[in-house]
């Protein structure tokens, strides 16, 4: 009887919230495989850069051919978004850099718009109850701007044909940007859609749509 009372009391004390739990908790972790354990400190810099570039390139391929796999989410990085964003900002800046009142966005403006927009979309996804981490979402949104960057490049190529059928060229550019916009929205929805509850998917997709719409609008108005 006494032993039972003691055990009961001891249980009560051990779960009391004000009593700190002390000591070491050791968990036996299985040894990492040799690939993971391999040190990269003594490898050539070229190998390191090439490995990272390959990882970034692989993610671009995922965006170009969006499948429902989670590699983009699992190994997130912000190199791709940075590259795409800098490219977009530099291309949009273009000739207007000398005259700020010429209707062309400046580098910093595009940069801030892209990152601020991505952060707002990410917060919205979190507030709606998304199960994805902050940087994963930023990574996906940044990589998915890639189709729009490609369309901007194509638009600049069409601009080289000066004087020949301006209306037709405008239609070509418009279709190009619209397709890229649809592509970007579809790709990001493919990656981010599963992180939301099914009854809120549309609510999470709408700000993504708006975000890419604003970027597309910047591209269209810049190259007309």
């Amino acid at each position: 009887m006494a032993a039972n009372e003691f055990s009961a009391d001891f249980t009560d004390v051990s779960v009391h919230e004000n009593v700190p739990v002390e000591g070491n908790i050791r968990i036996s972790v299985p040894l990492a495989s040799e690939d993971e354990d391999m040190s990269t400190l003594d490898e050539p810099v070229k190998d390191t850069i090439m490995r990272d570039l390959k990882a970034v390139g692989k993610k671009f391929v995922h965006v170009l051919y969006p499948k429902n796999n989670d590699e983009l989410l699992r190994d997130w990085d912000l190199w791709g978004p940075l590259i795409v964003c800098v490219f977009l900002a530099m291309m949009l800046q273009g000739k207007g850099a000398d005259s700020p009142t010429h209707g062309v966005p400046q580098f910093a403006e595009v940069f801030v718009t892209v990152w601020f927009g991505a952060i707002v979309v990410t917060f919205n996804s979190h507030l709606l109850g998304g199960t994805i981490s902050f940087f994963q979402s930023l990574c996906v949104l940044g990589y998915c701007i890639m189709p729009l960057s490609v369309s901007l490049l194509l638009c600049h190529v069409t601009l080289l044909a000066k004087g020949s059928l301006p209306l037709a060229m405008f239609i070509v550019r418009f279709i190009c940007v619209t397709l890229a916009f649809a592509w970007a929205t579809f790709a990001s929805t493919t990656f981010l859609g599963n992180s939301q509850p099914p009854n809120r998917k549309a609510l999470a997709v709408y700000p993504i749509f708006l975000f890419y719409f604003v970027i597309s609008w910047m591209i269209i108005t810049n190259v007309t």
Partner: peptide
């Protein structure tokens, strides 16, 4: 606040679009 916030952002996008189509030539920022 979801709906109101999104509507405000939508209005921002519409205003931006309206200004651009009206031929406004102020720097985009």
């Amino acid at each position: 606040l979801y709906g109101p916030l999104m509507l405000v952002f939508t209005m921002v996008a519409i205003l931006l679009q309206g200004m651009k189509t009206s031929g406004t030539i102020v720097s985009q920022g």
